[in-house]
Design a protein around this nucleic acid. Structure first.
Length: 842
RNA sequence: ACCCGGGUGGCGGAAUGGGUAGACGCAAGGGACUUAAAAUCCCUCGAUGGCAACAUCGUGCCGGUUCAAGUCCGGCCCCGGGUACCA
């Protein structure tokens, strides 16, 4: 027990013990409360980075804590193994992506094990294995059956570096999320999944996600982008079809003084055939589309088409313009312009001399200068709108919408910003989309019995173009039934498809189906932990997929993640750790130097999980110092305390202890427990650790290390056995601290638990509760204020009444100094806290 | 522009539903031990004035509510993140 703290010896031994007894392998147990704790699975890039370590430490602390609360805890881990980096690495190293990926998984798994995470490795999965993706292909067949997956030509975001299509979610500021290159627009035949079919439910159910951060919910709401409005048409001279527009402000209908259509709008195209100026503008819009992203604020440009439309209510002739800011992809590609009440329309109108016609009076008596800006309000009442004058916003919208509907000119409509999910990728290293094409290029499903469509792993991979196109053994196949020749699809799925259901599959390892009944035992996930960067992408797709699975009868719940914790970034020198910035710290070197417990402790101590964490080498050493002091205190506090414990327990601890220092220490032990219990629930591990450090400082003073000359600095002389009562109280503190620290630093806790003669393993110890009796002191210290300023402290009996407290406070020397010669107006007593004496000059 | 966060010592960060601002740790300074260094231990550590006791100021800025405001209310400023011609 006197050996120095040596994590290099302790940690592998404890990990081997856990592995040998299958400590973290779990089964479904009917009637026992379950807890499914999930961390976002890593991409096997080669080695863990600090972001992973932080994410997985948080998940592990939560899992181990929940286990000590008595729950049946599932904490799985796996690999998001398909994706582009494997292809890049393959080109660089001239090895197949599969080989590179599996080698990385192997190495990173070793790193995770070295960190001591309590994973059930028997459920491990890698998304690139046919065992996994065959069910994805099977499910795609179900989506095809239901018409929820379909193929269409579409203008797509084309990443010129990655040579592939990107989803809208993967385009950031007009650039590819991974390549950072400006995205081009191309028309390609693509596979889509009908997420828009679920837009309403995905939006509505956000309200159920009480355990999610508000920020993430807001981002998802904005992304889905629901709006309510009216769709209606304008009669256009010389056109049979009406020109449809969509508006969320039908109340401003009488203020329309122009109509704007997109450059790609058919009407603009038609006029362009005979009008060179319009033709030039349309061409400019098309070219600008590519460069659009590069221009921070593009100039608002437009040309008149030289044709007019009839206002649906007044019949007035209104000019139609082509304008570069109207998007063909949203609404109808045409908008009504109300320059008086829309800032963008106002700017365009001012630049092109279009009439600004106010139809809303400013609220109250306010005046508005339409030469300065548009009047944006929903608070005014209508003017210049005939029969609709004097109506407020809500009534005007209703009345005008009713009018349009009755006249058959339009109808109320709900629109979403959300687009269907494009899942085709022109990449090799992904899950093959399980379809084929017959001689007429018609889509034919691969029968379930022929799944999986296996991706060939031994490939010569030299360039960016998918080797699948050249592999005739993969490409050429035959039609089911007839045996006629057919060609396989060579596109693969977006890797977000795999990561949308991996946590379902964790529940059902080895199932000879996509999922089985076990899924509903574990799901929904009780706690999900991951990076904020997935607020929309992954978390929206996963919610969507869960609903698809539900509607296929595979799960029962509506939402997959009950609670979500988004951890903050790991920073170094104020900016995010990244290879490109060259400010990374390798977790491996830290583990080798200090041990896993120190790295985990620092991660949890430096800041709360949802905030950014600043890496600090010196503070890591400080965390290590704490573990060493704890270890040493435990070592010199060993010895048999069973007898004293039994005596104290029999008589009631609080009543039986007569040593005031022991009584005080015991109060501190239980104060720590009270704080730890409260803060564990809030994920405030930094303050839990601070409370343990405080307790350690107190215990260190209670049983100090002998000084060099052999004499103890306080209390009993060195070598002399400690008073049994004191020893028992100290032991209680050490045991409590070991429990509380166990989820954070599980290796040292495991070893000390044994050394402290506690039964079983600390991973299964019952979570300790604070003893109210221990917290109740004989006396309490109160703060005394005069006019809100701190002037002194008094000690009163815990049972003292307000009268006594007041008398004691007023009698205090320092207080009298501040109250003498003054009139006492009021005395406020806050029980257990303070006394405030309000005085006034006489 | 809009929507979320957030501004507290030299630094990371604490502070139950208004109730001792700066817990805990890091860094720094001083001291002990040591031939020396490392390690360890002890002390100091928001600002200003004072030998000191102590006093005054202090949680981005201005104002308000209250016996009492980092915390609540109103108005601004700054930083981080997200979304943006969305009709």
């Amino acid at each position: 027990m006197t050996s120095p703290y040596n994590p290099a010896e302790i940690e592998p031994a404890v990990q081997a013990y856990w592995e040998d007894c299958g400590a973290f392998v779990v089964r479904e147990e009917a009637g026992r409360e379950k807890f499914y704790c999930l961390s976002m699975l890593p991409y096997p890039s080669g080695q863990l980075h600090m972001g992973h370590v932080r994410n997985y430490t948080i998940g592990d602390v939560i899992s181990r804590y929940q286990r000590m609360l008595g729950k049946n805890v599932l904490q799985p881990m796996g690999w998001d193994a398909f994706g582009l980096p494997a292809e890049n690495a393959a080109i660089e190293r001239r090895m197949p992506p599969a080989k590179w990926t599996y080698a990385n998984i192997d190495y990173m798994k070793g790193q995770l094990k070295r960190l001591g995470f309590a994973y059930d490795w028997s459920r491990e999965l890698a998304t690139c294995t046919p065992d996994y993706y065959r069910w994805e292909q099977w499910f795609f067949n179900r989506l095809l059956d239901k018409g929820l997956a379909y193929k269409k030509m579409a203008v797509v975001n084309w990443d010129p570096v990655e040579q592939t299509v990107l989803a809208n979610e993967q385009v950031e500021n007009g650039r590819g999320w991974r390549s950072g290159e400006v995205v081009e627009r191309r028309e390609v035949s693509q596979w889509f999944i009908r997420i828009t079919e679920y837009a309403e439910e995905l939006l509505r159910d956000i309200d159920k996600l009480e355990g999610w951060p508000e920020s993430v919910k807001t981002m998802q709401r904005n992304w889905i982008g629901r709006s309510e409005g009216v769709e209606f048409g304008f009669e256009v001279e010389g056109e049979r079809e009406r020109l449809g527009v969509y508006t969320t402000r039908p109340d401003t209908l009488m203020g329309i003084t122009a109509i704007f259509v997109a450059g790609e709008h058919p009407l603009a195209g038609k006029v362009a055939q005979s009008d060179a100026k319009v033709a030039a503008f349309v061409a400019e819009c098309k070219n600008a589309a590519t460069a659009e992203a590069e221009l921070e604020a593009m100039e608002k440009k437009g040309v008149p088409l030289g044709i007019t439309a009839a206002h649906p209510l007044s019949g007035e002739r209104i000019d139609i313009w082509a304008a570069n800011f109207v998007l063909m992809g949203y609404g109808t590609g045409a908008v009504m312009a109300v320059p008086a009440h829309d800032q963008r329309d106002w700017e365009f109108a001012v630049a092109h001399g279009i009439e600004i016609r106010p139809v809303i009076a400013p609220p109250g008596d306010a005046q508005h200068d339409f030469d300065q800006s548009a009047l944006i309000t929903k608070a005014g009442t209508l003017i210049n709108s005939g029969e609709f004058d004097h109506l407020d916003f809500a009534r005007a919208c209703d009345a005008i919408a009713d009018h349009l509907e009755k006249a058959g000119l339009g109808k109320r409509a709900v629109k979403y910003r959300l687009r269907d999910w494009g899942v085709s990728r022109q990449r090799y290293w992904g899950c093959p989309i399980p379809v084929m094409y017959d001689g007429d290029d018609k889509v034919v499903q691969v029968p379930d019995a022929d799944l999986p469509v296996v991706l060939p792993e031994e490939v010569a991979f030299s360039g960016v173009k998918s080797p699948l196109k050249e592999r005739t053994d993969f490409r050429q196949t035959t039609l089911p039934g007839s045996g006629e020749p057919a060609l396989r699809e060579t596109d693969t799925f977006d890797t977000f498809v795999e990561s949308s259901w991996y946590f379902h599959r964790y529940c059902c390892p080895g199932a000879d189906a996509m999922l089985d009944a076990r899924a509903d035992y574990w799901l929904p996930v009780d706690q999900y932990i991951g990076g904020i960067e997935h607020a929309v992408l992954h978390l929206l797709y996963a919610r969507f997929f869960h609903k698809l699975l539900r509607d296929a009868g595979l799960v029962k719940s509506d939402e997959p993640f009950t609670n979500l914790l988004t951890q903050g970034m790991v920073l170094k020198d104020g900016s995010k750790m990244s290879k490109s910035k060259g400010n990374t710290v390798d977790p491996q070197s830290m583990i080798e130097r200090y041990g896993a417990d120190t790295v985990r402790l620092f991660m949890m101590f430096a800041s709360p999980p949802d905030q950014a964490l600043e890496w600090n080498d010196a503070a890591v050493a400080g965390a290590h110092r704490f573990l060493r002091r704890w270890w040493q205190l435990a070592a010199r506090s060993a010895g048999d305390v069973a007898g004293a414990k039994a005596t104290l327990a029999a008589n009631g601890w609080a009543a039986a202890i007569d040593d005031p220092a022991a009584l005080d220490l015991r109060r501190r032990v239980h104060a720590m427990l009270q704080k730890a219990n409260r803060d564990y629930r809030k994920f405030h591990y930094n303050t839990v650790i601070a409370a343990c450090m405080e307790l350690l400082n107190a215990m260190d003073k209670f049983n100090p290390a002998p000084s060099a000359d052999g004499a103890a600095t306080d209390g009993a002389a060195a070598g002399e056995a400690m008073d049994p009562q004191r020893a028992a109280v100290l032991r209680e503190g050490l045991v409590a601290m070991t429990c509380v620290m166990a989820p954070i630093t599980p290796h040292i806790a495991h070893r000390l638990w044994r050394d402290l003669d506690e039964p079983g393993d600390v991973i299964d110890a019952a979570w300790p509760q604070a003893d109210a009796d221990a917290l109740r002191g004989e006396a309490v210290e109160l703060v005394v204020q005069v006019n809100g300023k701190l002037r002194g402290h008094i000690e009163v009996a815990a049972t003292a009444g307000d009268e006594d407290i007041q008398t004691t406070a007023l009698a205090h020397d320092k207080i009298r100094k501040h109250t003498d010669g003054k009139v006492i107006r009021k005395v406020i007593v806050v029980p257990g806290r303070l006394v405030n004496i309000v005085v006034q000059d006489a």
